[in-house]
Structures are given as structure tokens and as C-alpha cells.
Simulated scan of single mutants.
Amino acid sequence: MDGDHLKALTLFGALLLSMPLSAAQLNLELGASSRTWQTEQLLKHPQVQTITITNDVSYKRDMSYRAVPLAALLTGIKPDDHLQAVALDGFAAELAAAPLLDTQGARAWLAIEDPAKPWPPLSEGKHSAGPFYLVWTDPQAGNISPEQWPFEVASIKRMAPVAERFPALLPDPALKADNPVNKGFALFQKNCLACHRLNGAGDAQFGPDLNIPFSPTEYFGADFLKRYIRDPQSLRQWPQAKMPAFATTVLPEGDLELLVGYLKHMAGRKVKP
């Protein structure tokens, strides 16, 4: 490619990033109460308000948004339902409905990017977190993980539970419901499944499979695996790394033990995709 062509592509890319935002739509696929919302409609929602998020997970600083309580949009959804938030890039966050419906403690909000007042890019050369971004006030009250902050959200769907959709993820059925491995499975769904598959099962398109061909428990020493989950960049550094750090406020030490216990258990239950 000659210099003129390269310069033209660079200018075109800069032009795209500088173009004014257009309105977007959010698809809520909730069964009988499904609905499509336009940006303008959400910005005029009767419950819309300005909220401040302290140390925003994606922007790494305090941010203010026009936002609607997510519970106000989840018509017909019950606490024991299961939802999936799908981003424009295919990221699929698995979300238990109960925390999304809470009005006390950790509270979920749909932040709406106003085309007239666009949000800053997430990093140089990148887009913003818009057009829609699931954010939380007081996230520490609910041990909300980084995977529960999907940005560039395009749709929110009611889905069958993960265990029904992906039986290859299930621990040994002989284990009792309160077995630590089953508790670790629940934590895996909350913290890992948005980016990783296991035994080829899951909707994730980002991180590697965590069991095929090998589980990280088979090639990481236990202490180093925990350290990697706590702070990936402390062990492996590269510019395009996307795995977030899981602080003790998000994943307490006991929960980390349970999560690693599930991965160890599943290393003995490999199912080739």
C-alpha cells in the first residue's frame, strides 16, 4: 500500500470517528412484553435522571449519565428469570434478573448516550460505551462483577437458564445442590461466561475455552491462577489484553476458592465440542 492510500484510509477513519452520532435502538426480547426503544424515547422516559457513577468500570473514572432504572424497562420479568445482554460486538453478558430488579443496594441503570452530547471514547481510536450501557450505583453492595457492566448494548433477552442451554457446563449431577462445586458453577456464570466458553459450551466469542484442550488449573499453579484472576496484567502484559481484574470487593477470597474449585472439577469432565 503506497503512502497516499494509507493517508486516505487514515483520514477516512478519523472522519468516521468524528461524525456526529445518530440515534440507536434497544431491543428488549422479553416474551409477551417485548419492545423496541429508540434513543429519543428513552431520553424522555418518565423515570430518566442524571446519575453519577464513581470509578466507572469501563472509563476508570467518575462519570455522569442520563439513565433509566433498568427495572423500569423489564416489564413482566421476575426475579428468578435469566437475561442476556448482547453488545454490538457480540459480547453476551449472562445476567440473573433478581439483581437487575432490585431498587435498594446495588442498583442497575441503563445509561443512554445522547447523540447531541456524545460520551468520550473508551480509549484512543475506540468508540464510546454507547449507545446504551448497563451501569450500577453502589455496586459493592451486591459484589457486582465487571462482566455485569456490558457496554454498546444492542439487546436484552430473556433466556432459558445457562444450565439448560449448555449441559456441557454442568458439574457432576450426583453432587448436592449446596456442594461447593455447584456454588463455583454459579460464580463461573456470573464472572466468566461472558468472555469464555467451557467444553465448547457458551455464547462467548472473546476469551479462550477454559477446559478444552486444557483447564488453566492444569497448567497454572493454584496460587498463580488466583493471582492471574485477581490481576491478569501482573502476570501477562500485552496492549490488547481485555480481561479485567477481579478485586476482593467483586470476588471475595472465599468466592475465588469456589470458582477455582469448579474449574478443577470440570478438568475431570472434559467434553470435546
Score class of each variant (00 low, 15 high):
A204Q: 01
I112D: 02
P118H: 06
Q240H: 12
A67C: 10
R61T: 12
T54P: 08
F132I: 06
L43I: 07
M159V: 09
T10F: 08
D81H: 04
G254L: 11
Y228I: 09
L225H: 05
T248Y: 11
F214P: 08
L169Y: 10
A201D: 01
A92S: 15
S64W: 14
A163G: 01
G200E: 03
I144L: 04
P146H: 03
K190G: 00
A23N: 02
H45Q: 08
A241V: 10
D56G: 02
S64A: 14
A14L: 13
P139K: 14
T217P: 05
Y228R: 04
S18N: 06
L83I: 04
L235H: 09
A267L: 04
S123C: 07
L100A: 02
Q205T: 14
D102Y: 10
E253C: 11
M19R: 10
N191K: 03
K157H: 12
A222S: 13
F185H: 01
A111S: 07
L187C: 03
R158Y: 01
K264I: 10
N143M: 14
S18E: 05
L170G: 00
L175A: 03
P150S: 14
L6E: 07
Q38Y: 10
P171L: 05
S155H: 10
A241M: 15
T217G: 12
G184D: 06
P232H: 06
L83A: 06
E94L: 02
Q47V: 13
T249D: 12
D172I: 15
M19Y: 15
Q148R: 05
V68C: 01
Q148C: 07
K272H: 14
L101M: 06
G76A: 05
G254P: 10
L26I: 09
A186Q: 03
Q84R: 12
E40Y: 11
G184Q: 02
A241P: 03
D172Q: 14
P239C: 01
A204T: 05
E164C: 09
D2A: 13
K183Y: 12
L42N: 00
